[in-house]
């Protein structure tokens, strides 16, 4: 068996991805593809009617950016768990930045990656942990 360079080091950061702008057209496309047509994502007046400042991005669309970052980092990795928590709503039209770092090494082939999505102002929108292995 090989001790291939598949080890993880606590604190290592994943390569930054490109900032992602999330215009209304992307939200509509995600609503169509996912079937989640909750009006708080699509209808500004409906969103304001429930006390939001306007339409907000689907949480599952935000969460999905974590997988993209992980697979861009190590295309062949295996994802075992993915847990996320939303800290504040993300307005449609915002730009997000996804970050990740190794939080814990479980063994030579697996680790926990701590992930976060921030907006342009640096506010944490969503945080999560992924358990991955090579």
């Amino acid at each position: 068996m090989s001790d291939a360079p598949s080890s993880f080091t606590v604190g290592d950061r994943l390569p930054d991805g490109r900032p992602r702008h999330l215009p209304a057209s992307d939200i509509s496309a995600y609503a169509e593809a996912s079937g989640d047509r909750n009006p708080i994502h699509l209808d500004d007046s409906a969103a304001r009617g429930v006390g939001l400042p306007g339409t907000i991005v689907h949480g599952m669309l935000v969460m999905g950016q974590f997988e993209a970052m992980l697979r861009a980092w190590r295309p062949g990795l295996t994802l075992h768990t993915l847990q996320t928590r939303f800290l504040r709503p993300l307005p449609v039209g915002a730009t997000i930045h996804v970050e990740g770092r190794i939080a814990k090494v479980l063994d030579e082939r697996s680790a926990i990656v701590r992930l976060s999505v921030r907006d342009d102002e640096g506010h944490a929108i969503c945080v999560g942990d992924a358990t991955v292995s090579d």
Binding site: R20, H21, L22, D26, A29, Y30, E32, A33, S34, M60, L61, M63, G64, Q65, E67, A68, R71, P75, L79, L82
Partner: peptide, 19 residues
């Protein structure tokens, strides 16, 4: 594709997206 904003998504490697 919707997750990726219209670009190539995880379909490129044949995975079913995690979510």
């Amino acid at each position: 594709r919707a997750l990726a904003g219209g670009g190539t998504g995880t379909e490129a490697n044949g995975n079913v997206p995690a979510t």
